[in-house]
């Protein structure tokens, strides 16, 4: 796995949103997002960029510090160093004050029909 230069994340919030901007966590360290657009309020879409510039051991989206956050869909586009970017889409999940969302997925292996 090459170094992960940056990733772009888009999170569509469902019924229950949160006011505070989310943070991302790489290998246990909490980091602010860059290029933030939109919001995490109910029905809104939050878009931002993270710049690991490193090899993620774990990459997480921090759950809210209060309340619950209903996520309808998350789309993450990864930009590995020297390789083509790839995108992973995740389905509905609810985060709370005791949970983080795993957002680290290696490039999906190609699936083809026979």
């Amino acid at each position: 796995m090459p170094r992960l230069d940056t990733f772009q994340i888009s999170v569509k919030t469902g019924a229950r949103g949160v006011d505070a901007l989310p943070r991302w966590i790489i290998n246990g360290f909490s980091v602010d997002f860059e290029d933030v657009r939109g919001s995490t309020r109910s029905g809104d879409t939050f878009e931002a960029t993270g710049s690991p510039g490193s090899f993620p051991h774990t990459l997480l989206l921090r759950g809210p510090d209060e309340g619950a956050w209903d996520i309808e869909e998350t789309r993450i586009t990864y930009y590995p160093n020297g390789e083509e970017p790839y995108t992973v889409r995740l389905g509905a999940v609810t985060l709370d004050t005791e949970s983080d969302l795993n957002i680290w997925y290696e490039r999906p292996q190609a699936v083809f029909d026979l």
Partner: peptide, 18 residues
Amino acid sequence: RPVPEPHAPRKVVHAPIL
């Protein structure tokens, strides 16, 4: 200087891959 993750450890959840 920040200290790594002052919060209590949280459980990591996985959303279904679409």
